[in-house]
Design a protein around this nucleic acid. Structure first.
Lengths: 216, 216, 216, 216
DNA sequence: AATGAATGAGCTTTCATTCAT
DNA sequence: AATGAATGAAAGCTCATTCAT
């Protein structure tokens, strides 16, 4: 997982320093173009233009539009999950972890709303990738919830159902207040966060009270 | 809202009986084609072929591919909401209404998974349409929740936040257990529904007990 | 074989008068372009330019470059064989038929050198088509040779081998003196024709003498 | 003709031992790739991959795709003619030489059918190369035929016409029974060879008998 | 001598849309 | 009201060739 990553061309040959830089440029350009235009309106021409390389160059590094998209989604998955994981690891109790994780998720979405749109688009372009994305996030939740149940911190219930319910709450609240609400700074308003959090807390039957912490 | 609908051509002129039939045929064909292929893979040729009319005919009734898609989404939105509304109207208490509404939503998704995917695709094809879709469902929820609060059936809280949270729960649970779980019959398993429902009930602080069932 | 031919679009639908004209224009343009540039150097753009229609129009009538090429080859086959058949049918004896057939073949090649190049190109583009071409010509020869053998006009031998040998002779003589010798008028010089013809006559062991007739 | 060949780079500078090896590797790779795919489907990438060198290296040794193809055709031509010459030199009489030459030609075609297809493809890729190919073979024939005529072994006739007629016979018989007849072992069946040979013998008015065999 | 990244023109094909009939 | 031929822009992709290292 943390082995040194070796980048290769579309043909599988390893890349030189220069090649690696070009590949990076293409990925960055793709991120920009996909998030602005969506997968279908994006095109190789637009991506290569944004990367300031010729069209042919694209195919040195990626096999197709699909492939670069998949790679991008995988990368973003990693980043969202990382952000959430880092944050919730700071929590002393399950309740706090929950709160911090949500806040991190919202923060990521707020900071990279375009990126988050890419992930959502995967539903149609690369369903397997999206499946993976949610499944991986769910995994983390489930483990946490199970522990909390064992510790008697929350109700005893099927952690998988709870995990997906929680993700759903985050998803739509984020969509409504971050993605759609153009208001700057992009963030879930304090009160909304608190209301949502209260709902979740009740839903999980969290015992001990919780306080503090940054919202989103 | 329930005024007699008058169908018009793309130019706005009213339609003859025959014209209305052709228009209907095109809409049905579009529903079929969009649900099977998605917006981008669908094409006017395929739609007109499925409707057994010529390409030119399409533009007598619709201005563009976008327009027929929007119309379709609006139509589907009407149908989902109708199903949910009908169902929850049967409920004696807010809790029961909630339960029945959810079940209806899941049932719709289960019966027309492809259609539901169309709605989700609107996020990229016609963001406004998706916005509308959720906003309208939220409206219904909000009204219901407000009443329940007034009656002291649930906690007092911002009904808008609750509404979006509830939609999120339904959304992801449906995605996970209906859209992704290929198992027939497509439906949210009884236990999953109950677990979810318990979560929601707690979250809403619903007092009185609940009865009945018919999940989805 | 002589049933009324119905032209159809690439999709298989029948064509209007106008459509038929466009299709014809494309076929003519293709003949010109393929013969001047060869299959690989030819392109849809060049063909549609020569036909003065847009690129998209091409695909209304033909599925691909291959398909229009195949159609063209089949058409040319028909024409060469027709010319040869008509001519040799005038012969009173097998010897005369042979002579007239050859002359017709050379005449066709001389008049449409470009077309003949197309047929030869089929060897690589559409081997089956070329196979067919020669096989069909061979058939005609074989039948004629068999009759001549029965009548005692020529030696008794395997007519298939003879047929291919004869085709070979015509092929390379034509290539050498018509296709390569730019001299106008394009035709196999009288003396060459006679020398070749004498060779063949001896080879077939033709009894009765032959005289007269146009060469190429 | 048999002067020591000096290999040079595309620029004309002479090659080192190592350079010569690389050049050879490229030629071998090209032979393989061209024969498997034909000129147009072949690509420099595929050739350099097969030769296990980088794309850039190709252009150190050859000016273009065309050039390496021409060189290859010339090489193959040399090899076919060599095979035919060697064989016919064994013949005691012209008749025998003829027979052996044909057999050798068929044998070469049978052993390297793909290579022979390359030569034929030259007609469109590099007409001059094909012209040369046949012209050189014809030369050999003509010289032989002239001698035979002088010796009274065959009829007196224009040797050039006879030469091309003979090549034609070999060409199409080879095409029909070796190139197209997939049957293994690839070879012209004994009887076919004999029939063809009888035809030629008669055509040349060969006096003296013939013996031996070894067809193709 | 060798590399391999970069180029850009060109290819085949699709498709939303227009328009004469 | 309906047709279907025509358009032309744009798409994804390939490839011979050049050049800095």
């Amino acid at each position: 997982m943390t082995a040194v990553e070796t980048f290769t061309s579309a043909r599988g040959t390893p890349l030189s320093k220069r090649g690696e830089r070009t590949r990076r440029r293409l990925l960055d350009a793709a991120e920009k173009v996909f998030s602005e235009l969506g997968y279908y309106e994006a095109s190789i021409v637009k991506i290569t233009e944004a990367a300031a390389v010729s069209q042919g160059t694209f195919y040195i590094y990626f096999e197709s539009k699909q492939q670069i998209f998949d790679e991008l989604v995988a990368d973003l998955n990693r980043r969202v999950r990382h952000a959430m994981h880092e944050a919730s690891a700071q929590g002393a109790s399950r309740a706090e972890s929950e709160r911090l994780g949500f806040a991190a998720f919202f923060r990521f979405t707020a900071e990279h709303p375009a990126l988050y749109r890419i992930i959502r688009q995967a539903e149609f372009v690369s369903p397997a990738a999206l499946h993976d994305h949610y499944a991986k996030i769910a995994e983390g939740y489930i483990a946490g919830l199970r522990q909390a149940m064992a510790a008697g911190d929350i109700v005893t219930a099927d952690p998988e159902v709870l995990a997906w319910a929680l993700m759903g709450v985050g998803e739509l609240i984020g969509m409504r207040w971050i993605l759609w609400d153009g208001a700057e700074p992009r963030q879930v308003p304090e009160e909304v966060f608190e209301e949502m959090y209260a709902f979740i807390t009740r839903g999980l039957g969290t015992s001990g009270g919780i306080r503090d912490s940054s919202s989103g």
